[in-house]
Design a protein around this nucleic acid. Structure first.
Length: 233
DNA sequence: GCGACAG
DNA sequence: ATCTTGTCGC
C-alpha cells in the first residue's frame, strides 16, 4: 500500500478537499479490466461493516463465509474511534482504517477471494467509493452493495428476484440495481476493483438466498453491533 | 443559489 | 449510522 491510497495514518487527509484529491488519484488505480472471479471460482468471501456509538466509539467487523455453504469460517473485530466525519462521498475516510484493521485480524482466512462492502464502488461522484479504496489497498477483488440510491439514475427493476437495471451517472454505467428477493426494494451493486459487474451481481444474488442484503453484510453488521452493545452495558 | 446526499 | 412503538407473520 503506497502513498495516496488512503490507508496510511501519515498521509491521511485532514480536510474534505484533501480527501477528494486522494480519490481523484485513486480512481486511476482501480483494476477494471478483467471479469475477476466468477461465483464458481469463489471459495471464501468476506463481508465488512462498522457500527457506531455516541462519543465516536466504533466497532468494525470482518466475517469470512464459505461461498458454497454460507457458513462462517472466520471473523474479526476492531474497536476504535472515528477520525473523520461522515461526509457523503467521503465515507471511505471514515470507515476504511477500521475495516482494514478488522481484516488484518482474520486468522484462519486472512486473504478471502472477494470482499463485499456496505456502500459503493464506482457508483460515486469521483468513481472512488469505499469498495474502490479497499480493493486498491488490499489487492483483493472487492465490490459494494448499498441499500439506498445516491447520485445516479436507474429504472425500477422487475418485481422478481434476479431482476436488475443499470445505474448510470454522466451517461456511463456505474453499477446495477438488483432485486435480491421478490417484492423487496433492490440493492445497488457497483464494483470496486479486481472484479467485473456481472460477477459481482451474480455473487450478490448467491449471497442473498433469503434476505434483501447479502449474508456477508448481515453477518458483519450483526457482529459489529453485538460487540458494540457488549461494551456499552 | 438551494437542497440532497453511501454509512 | 443511530434513535424508537407498534405491528404483521412464521
Amino acid at each position: 500500500m503506497g502513498a495516496g491510497t488512503g490507508g496510511e495514518p501519515d498521509d491521511w487527509p485532514r480536510t474534505e478537499a484533501e480527501a477528494a484529491a486522494v480519490q481523484e488519484r485513486l480512481r486511476e488505480r482501480a483494476d477494471l479490466v478483467g471479469p475477476g472471479p466468477g461465483p464458481d471460482q469463489v471459495r471464501t468471501v468476506a463481508g465488512v461493516d462498522v457500527a457506531y456509538a455516541d462519543g465516536g466509539e466504533l466497532v468494525a467487523a470482518a466475517v469470512v463465509l464459505d461461498a458454497a455453504t454460507l457458513t462462517v469460517v472466520d471473523e474479526s473485530v476492531h474497536v476504535g474511534r472515528t477520525r473523520f466525519p461522515y461526509v457523503p462521498g467521503l465515507l471511505a475516510f471514515r470507515e476504511l482504517p477500521s475495516v482494514v484493521a478488522a481484516l488484518r485480524g482474520l486468522s484462519r482466512h486472512p486473504r478471502p477471494d472477494v470482499v463485499v462492502c456496505d456502500g459503493y464502488g464506482l457508483a460515486h461522484p469521483r468513481r472512488a467509493g469505499l469498495a474502490v479504496h479497499l480493493g486498491v489497498l488490499t489487492g483483493i477483488p472487492c465490490f459494494g452493495v448499498a441499500k439506498t440510491p445516491f447520485l445516479f439514475d436507474f429504472e425500477e427493476p422487475g418485481p422478481q428476484r434476479g431482476a436488475w437495471a443499470p445505474l448510470t451517472m454522466d451517461g456511463e454505467q456505474v453499477g446495477r440495481a438488483l432485486r435480491t428477493q421478490d417484492g423487496v426494494k433492490p440493492v445497488f451493486v457497483s464494483v470496486g476493483s479486481g472484479i467485473g459487474l456481472d460477477n459481482a451481481a451474480a455473487l450478490t444474488l448467491r449471497l442473498a438466498p433469503a434476505y434483501r442484503q447479502p449474508e456477508t453484510t448481515r453477518r458483519a453488521d450483526h457482529l459489529a453491533r453485538r460487540r458494540l452493545a457488549e461494551r456499552s452495558g
